[in-house]
Computed example of a mutant assay.
Amino acid sequence: MSRYHAYLKRAVSLLEQYDGREPFSIYYKKAIALDKKAGSTDRKIIRHYCYSFFRIGFACSAQTIEERLLIAVYLIHGDTDPLLKIVRPEWIAQGATSFEQRVALACPTFSWPQVFPLPFSLSMELSLEEWVKSILYQPAFFIRIRPGKQQHVISRLKEASISFRIISSSALALPAATNLDTLLALNEDYVVQDLSSQRVGEFLQPLLPKTIKSVWDCCAASGGKSLLLMDQYPSLELTVSDVRPSILQQLKTRFKQAGINNYHALVLDLSQQGFPKNATRFDLVIADVPCSGSGTWARTPEQITKQTEEQLVEFTQRQRAILSRLPASLKSGGYLLYCTCSVFANENEEQVAWLQREFGLSLCKQTLLNGMAEQADTLYVALLQKTSS
């Protein structure tokens, strides 16, 4: 038995045991650590096969896990993978050069709707085929260069012969899984931030800094968007909150590394309570709410088959519980920036329409930051204004 047969067997075993209770990256790291014979190259190859399996979702589901894995590798990577040359030489012999030709050979019943068959409409005329195709391939690795660090970062990357693509004066795209740990200082020289997330700053730019003085990032997580705004406008009065104390501690560590100290932080469960009464109202509230994450599933393709319709409905309910508590914290004339990393309309424009009906907010603009062409995530952003006190 070749080592590629062994890789296939191990990948199938891991997929059979994975229950979706934690991200596959965490599960895989723990499970593969028990295999003392697997070296770093072995682990990368096995992980590659597992993620290829997830990328075709529910398609070809009548087949066994092993067969679906082989189909996925063939559809996505063609005849370049050594495993197929050993296990499915008859496919390679056909010389199929297009995705459609490979489908006809390996899984004639394949269709794009099969990949994710749950009944949800996509946002803003995004096509199902475009979205599903984007999930087939691993996204790029994006960083944002901190102010004043561009020359240093570029020089260090060139010295280390790391390939990169300049998107803007601060945004770089690098190959997936690039490791900069020993080359640059994370959060001091650069931050890891997807390209579409970086573009949220551009979305807000016309308002800043003349209109916006005080900002509340109400679902701040590790603070990526707040850090972006503080880099651009360091005089902002910033408040951050999150329901998870551990995540908020990560934010504090990150901000300390970034040299940002002028902010207020608090633990707050917005599904249960709003901002403390009698507190200062804000010019801008950023609501990057918990969501399905469907705009990032190319990074976590296991979500395609592990998300249920019930879970997706729960996200919309939780979003409304959070959103219902935000208008009271806006100044008259203040703005609410609503963000998700979802491509589903019920988490995006349908929630905005609900905010307009229930709270009388006015929609200033909305867009889908479609990163698919640049191997980036896809985010939805909408800016609403409170026109009465």
Rank of each mutant, 00 (worst) to 15 (best):
148 G>A: 05
150 Q>S: 15
150 Q>I: 07
151 Q>A: 15
151 Q>P: 00
152 H>R: 13
152 H>D: 07
153 V>H: 03
154 I>P: 04
154 I>L: 15
154 I>Y: 10
154 I>R: 09
155 S>D: 12
155 S>Y: 11
156 R>T: 07
156 R>S: 13
158 K>I: 12
158 K>E: 15
158 K>L: 14
159 E>Y: 04
159 E>T: 13
160 A>C: 10
160 A>K: 14
161 S>K: 15
161 S>Y: 12
161 S>V: 13
162 I>A: 10
162 I>E: 05
162 I>W: 03
163 S>K: 14
164 F>I: 10
164 F>V: 11
164 F>L: 08
164 F>W: 11
164 F>S: 08
165 R>G: 04
165 R>T: 14
165 R>Q: 14
165 R>I: 12
166 I>N: 03
166 I>R: 12
166 I>F: 00
167 I>L: 06
168 S>Y: 05
169 S>V: 06
169 S>E: 15
169 S>N: 15
169 S>C: 09
170 S>M: 02
170 S>E: 12
170 S>R: 10
171 A>M: 04
171 A>W: 02
171 A>L: 06
171 A>G: 03
171 A>N: 02
172 L>Q: 05
172 L>E: 03
172 L>D: 04
173 A>H: 02
173 A>D: 02
173 A>Q: 06
174 L>P: 00
175 P>D: 08
175 P>S: 11
177 A>Q: 15
177 A>I: 02
177 A>M: 12
178 T>L: 11
178 T>E: 12
178 T>S: 15
178 T>Q: 07
178 T>D: 10
178 T>N: 11
179 N>H: 10
179 N>F: 04
179 N>G: 07
179 N>W: 03
179 N>R: 14
180 L>Y: 08
180 L>G: 05
180 L>D: 05
181 D>K: 13
181 D>V: 10
181 D>Y: 02
181 D>I: 05
182 T>M: 08
182 T>A: 14
183 L>C: 01
183 L>S: 02
183 L>K: 01
183 L>Y: 02
184 L>E: 02
184 L>A: 06
184 L>N: 04
185 A>T: 10
185 A>V: 12
185 A>K: 10
185 A>N: 08
186 L>P: 00
186 L>V: 00
187 N>I: 00
187 N>V: 00
188 E>H: 14
188 E>G: 03
188 E>N: 12
188 E>R: 12
189 D>C: 07
191 V>T: 10
191 V>A: 12
191 V>I: 14
191 V>E: 05
192 V>T: 12
192 V>N: 05
192 V>M: 08
192 V>L: 12
192 V>W: 02
193 Q>S: 09
193 Q>W: 09
193 Q>G: 05
194 D>N: 13
194 D>K: 03
194 D>S: 09
194 D>M: 07
195 L>G: 01
195 L>A: 01
195 L>F: 07
195 L>E: 05
195 L>H: 05
197 S>H: 01
197 S>E: 09
197 S>Q: 04
197 S>I: 11
198 Q>Y: 03
198 Q>C: 05
198 Q>A: 04
199 R>V: 00
199 R>G: 01
199 R>M: 07
200 V>F: 01
200 V>M: 08
201 G>A: 10
